[in-house]
């Protein structure tokens, strides 16, 4: 059984009384434990919508979604909050660190919300901060560190609960190429140590770090590319070709 299963997921936004926007038409997707999956697609294709549904921040109009055999499509507000902090980790484009806390407390936040013991938090943060190279940042405020550093703090915050699934929406969107590369290497590294990752991205470069890339278009999964045994530059080339094909199809269909 896969870790994450989506069957016939449909999401319709209703604006006003009549205007309906079909963001997702029919999505079937399963993710195995330990996979690193990238999701690509045009702006407005429904990537964030999909991620929000998996994150239990939004509910699908129809279809079923399970994570570890838990049905996510009909959780109450309270249960979904608890589910999020116990099973999911989040990394956002804009970092979403809280400037009221210093970096250490930002990382502790999900554990505090789960009522963990302070000693437990300290035990957890030690190996993590070493692996992410953020030891010397912990006592500073988010306003006092760089964007790349902020994203590493955010990743530490996402990983400290040892989530089943790490969700990342454009994690490198606000970073320069050097910092992006560092973050993606980090993703690779934590993926190798067993962490399942689902990442939405615009950048083919970023997607090339994943093992599998999904292309969303018109509310369905249009195409899927496995990296297999190829090296990264090969895989990148393939992704770029796919994207080009996707766009040209669009041109011919118009």
């Amino acid at each position: 059984m896969s870790l994450l299963n989506l069957k016939h997921i449909k999401k319709v936004f209703t604006e006003g009384n009549t205007n309906q926007i079909v963001a997702l038409r029919d999505i079937d997707l399963s993710v195995e434990k330990g996979e690193f999956v990238a999701i690509m697609g045009e702006s407005g294709a429904g990537k964030s919508t999909l991620l929000n549904i998996i994150a239990t921040l939004d509910q699908p109009t129809s279809g079923t979604i399970t994570l570890n055999q838990t049905d996510l499509s009909h959780l109450s507000e309270k249960d979904s909050s608890q589910f999020r902090r116990e099973h999911l980790g989040f990394v956002f484009q804009s970092f979403n660190l809280l400037d009221t806390f210093n970096n250490r407390d930002n990382i502790f936040l999900p554990l505090v919300l789960s009522k963990a013991k302070h000693e437990f938090m300290i035990d957890r943060i030690k190996p993590l901060s070493k692996a992410l190279g953020i030891d010397n940042l912990l006592d500073r405020q988010p306003s006092e560190i760089s964007g790349g550093q902020k994203q590493r703090i955010a990743i530490a915050r996402a990983l400290i609960t040892q989530p089943d699934l790490l969700l990342a929406d454009e994690p490198t969107g606000a970073l320069d190429s050097g910092n992006s590369e560092k973050i993606l290497r980090l993703f690779n590294q934590i993926n190798h140590s067993g962490q399942t990752i689902l990442m939405v991205t615009h950048s083919a470069e970023a997607a090339s770090y994943a093992q599998r890339t999904l292309f969303i278009k018109d509310g369905i999964i249009y195409n899927e590319l496995y990296r297999g045994d190829q090296n990264r530059s090969h895989y990148l080339e393939q992704i770029i070709n796919s994207l080009a094909a996707l766009q040209s199809r669009e041109v011919t269909s118009q």
Binding site: S81, F83, F90, D99
Partner: peptide
């Protein structure tokens, strides 16, 4: 801040 914390799993209650 509260919006961010809700995303991270802070319930209404």
């Amino acid at each position: 801040n509260y919006a961010i914390m809700r995303q991270l799993g802070l319930s209404q209650q």
